[in-house]
Amino acid sequence: MIFITTILKEVMTMYNYLITLTGKLRNNGERAKRPFRVIMEKEIADHVSSWRFIILIAIIALTCMGSLYTALSNISQAVKPNDPEGSFFFLKLFTITDGTMPSFTVFISFLGPLLGIGLGFDAINSEHNRGTLSRVLSQPIHRDYIINAKFAAALFVISVMLLSLGIMVMGAGLVTIGIPPTAEEFMRMVFFILLSILYVAFWLNMSILFSVLFRQPATAALSAIAVWLFFSVFYPLIVNLITRSMEPAATASPQQLMAFEQFHLTLMRVMPNQLFSEATTTLMMPSVRSLGPLTMEQMIGAIPGPLPLGQSILLVWPQVTGLMAGTIVSFVIAYILFMRREIRSR
């Protein structure tokens, strides 16, 4: 929680500062800013005006439009009688697909890492290579301001971007299908976007960690992409290899089958993308009741129906915690490495 507390502390001190300074504005109404804010503002400006960010946002906006288009052209087929999710018509915008184009949620889980890696892989090492790090560090600021501000700025940019994308998709859906979302649907979408921000923050932190570890931005970017590819392509293959060799016979006892399923799931849940997709599925499809195997015993007597929002969130809480833990662990490692490093020029 180090970074969250730091940021909160920063916000609090900024707030206090603001209060003490109210009325004491300088000549033309301008106030000196706190160094943390100065760095953050510069980082945000850098991100927003960089080609990299424009390219990333273009890719993501295009895929969003694509998925929205397929969702809209297939939405009429998605409405079935007696559907337990019938009352969550609007959410289908984010999840349905005709099989040719992945849905919005799948796109986010695929492109989110790219966004996070893209904004973080040269955070520290490029400053070092340009020789600006030692110059900035010799200003009266604490060393952790730099890494905190860089993280906060990238997170801010990502949040604004994902929030506006999500709201734009909602708006486009609203205009096209003409059915407004219910309050619960809206809340679910907000939670989905928050979850996506958390997911992208995980990859952002990992790439910041690599930017502290490696002096060359290209190496850092490649290693971060390697981790991403490993988790999205190779890791599931490896898990399948392992579990296939352990697969119990068809005649095995239910307990054995259950234990095997649980084991398989546990292995899969090491992947951040698995955690994210489980969490989004539950949030966006309210009829999902469990993310693990259920016995017939547990199913008997259950009336198919959507879960209330609170229950859905409760169901994905472990996943959310896991993602948060991953994010914090990589930030802490990056933070410690950065604080201990001796900064020489170039």
């Binding site: 033309n28 000196a32 160094p35």
Partner: peptide, 30 residues
């Protein structure tokens, strides 16, 4: 402190680089 091989943000102008340093030292932008 002027480090050996000082570096600046190449995509900012000289003036902007100085203003950034000044702001880090608690000066107002003007």
């Amino acid at each position: 402190y002027l480090p050996e091989e000082v570096g600046f943000y190449d995509d900012l102008t000289g003036l902007e680089n100085l203003v950034y340093t000044a702001c880090l030292n608690g000066m107002t932008r003007n």
